[in-house]
């Protein structure tokens, strides 16, 4: 992670049905800096504005007011360059496996790079790289995407976006509908991809636990505005407010909040079993144990 902002929004606001009686603000006054190489989790319940926000990052939506800067330049400054913005910011939508359409896995992954007008050998390299990023062997190249399991389809669809080698990869709920093992595989895959490529990754999720496991910072959206944008630990120190927003906080954070309610002074910014176990161990050793 660097101190160079790759993606910036300035007072970004988007209002559905602008000018009518039924104006609905989807996002309001969003001003954030996302740093080059950072992995940011975006959290918020349905209707909080998180999906509308990511649609602005690759110019699928244009703010009613405010600006979006990619690497310092306003993405709407030159409308003829909008297409290249979409190559630099790759968005993988929910249930991307429904968008698979080609005869073979290789052709499907090659669709993006082909549209970018790349040479065949460069396309081939990218297809191979992308497959390895998602943990699938070259043996998958000639398979039909429709013969794969649900989890494999999901990974092929994500590989299709990775093959465009975007500067910013945006994944909307990449773990939705997967079982615990599938979820873990996809999360590890995303973390590895970031580590290997140094790419910026934005991960939209309902699950605080998933996001906490791999993100550097968390952006919490609530009622169309930014509620928090900070490190995982600092965001979880607001556990009570998160709960009041109707968000599911990690189970361990919930445990710590309950202990606090019972008058026990514990930190609330821990979120894994091992963190809480270590904290309790040191407390119990410290002589706070009720002698039995």
């Amino acid at each position: 992670m660097t101190n160079h902002p790759i993606l910036t929004t300035e007072d970004l606001t988007y209002i559905y049905q602008k000018g009518s009686k039924n104006e609905v603000p989807a996002i309001q006054d969003v001003s954030i800096d996302i740093m080059q190489g950072e992995l940011v989790g975006i959290i918020g319940h349905t209707g909080s504005g998180k999906s509308t926000l990511i649609e602005h990052f690759n110019a699928l939506k244009k703010g009613t007011s405010g600006r979006v800067l990619l690497d310092g330049a306003d993405i709407w400054a030159d409308r003829s360059k909008i297409r290249s913005v979409r190559f630099h910011v790759g968005v993988c939508f929910q249930y991307p496996e429904y968008q698979l359409f080609e005869e073979t896995v290789a052709k499907d992954i090659a669709f993006g790079p082909k549209n970018m007008g790349l040479q065949q050998d460069e396309i081939d390299r990218r297809v191979s790289d992308a497959l390895s990023f998602v943990g699938l062997s070259d043996a998958y190249k000639e398979k039909s995407p429709f013969d794969l399991s649900g989890g494999e389809k999901r990974r092929v669809a994500i590989a299709g976006i990775m093959a465009m080698e975007p500067q910013v990869l945006v994944l909307d709920e990449p773990c939705a509908g997967l079982d615990p093992r599938g979820r873990e595989t996809v999360l590890r895959m995303i973390a590895d991809y970031r580590a290997k490529t140094g790419c910026t990754v934005l991960l939209v999720s309902h699950s605080m636990e998933d996001v906490a496991a791999i993100a550097d910072r968390i952006l919490v959206m609530n009622q169309s505005r930014v509620a928090f944008f900070d490190t995982v630990e600092r965001v979880f120190s607001h556990a009570e407010e998160l709960q009041n927003m109707g968000l599911d906080i990690p189970q361990m954070t919930h445990l710590l909040l309950l202990l606090r309610e019972k008058g026990i002074d514990v930190p609330v910014n821990l979120y894994t079993v091992s963190q809480v176990h270590a904290m309790l161990q040191s407390r119990l050793k410290g002589g706070n144990v009720n002698a039995e």
């Binding site: 445990l255 202990l259 019972k262 008058g263 161990q281 039995e292």
Partner: peptide
């Protein structure tokens, strides 16, 4: 977590299933 703490010798009787139950028992210990 309850099983880890039990292995450490912390007394947490019964089969703990929910966060609420664990909080209750831990509060007594702490």
């Amino acid at each position: 977590l309850a099983q880890l703490l039990k292995q450490d010798g912390v007394s947490l009787p019964g089969k703990i299933l929910t966060v609420e139950e664990l909080a209750e028992q831990l509060a007594a210990v702490l």
